[in-house]
């Protein structure tokens, strides 16, 4: 478990909670993560939004986003805490490091392809045009 994993945690806070209570709650959650050895690389509010469907009679909520780097242990604790807390309507954790790696790979592959075929797409996608062009070359 030495490797670092990156997670995105999105959670919804009840709009009924007071402002200072909300900040306290967020700070508390951050402390849980840091105490267990994780680091919070991003912590931002996605703002107040209307929920796409009702969650426990609530129609809107405050969305928060954490980006956490860690081993997974802090995620387990964080999720446990969020499950217990009534002010948190819902949470979603997504492990993003693997997906980002894949995105990087795709990007690299595209770059490689582009350098290999500099004229790809230059013929405008119409097969007929490309064939005609090739014919001209042969005649010349």
């Amino acid at each position: 478990m030495a490797e670092k994993r990156i997670y995105e945690v999105v959670f919804i806070i009840d709009t009924g909670t007071g402002e200072d209570e909300t900040t306290r709650l967020i700070e508390g959650l951050q402390r849980i993560v840091t105490d267990l050895g994780g680091t919070i690389t991003k912590s931002e509010s996605m703002g107040r939004r209307t929920l796409a469907y009702k969650i426990g009679r609530k129609t809107e909520g405050n969305y928060m986003l954490f980006e956490i780097e860690g081993t997974g242990r802090e995620i387990a604790e964080l999720e446990r805490r969020m499950r217990v807390n009534d002010a948190i309507l819902r949470y979603l954790t997504v492990r993003v490091d693997e997906e980002r790696q894949r995105a990087e790979k795709l990007k690299a592959r595209r770059a490689r392809k582009a350098s290999k075929r500099p004229f790809a797409g230059a013929s405008g996608g119409r097969g007929g045009a490309a064939v005609a062009l090739a014919g001209d070359e042969e005649e010349a």
């Binding site: 999105v10 959670f11 919804i12 939004r49 929920l51 796409a52 469907y53 969650i55 819902r90 979603l92």
Partner: peptide, 14 residues
């Protein structure tokens, strides 16, 4: 599917 889970998108149209 992820967006549905956290109520950013609906599961069904009601």
């Amino acid at each position: 599917k992820r967006a549905r889970n956290i109520a950013l998108l609906p599961y069904t149209a009601d």
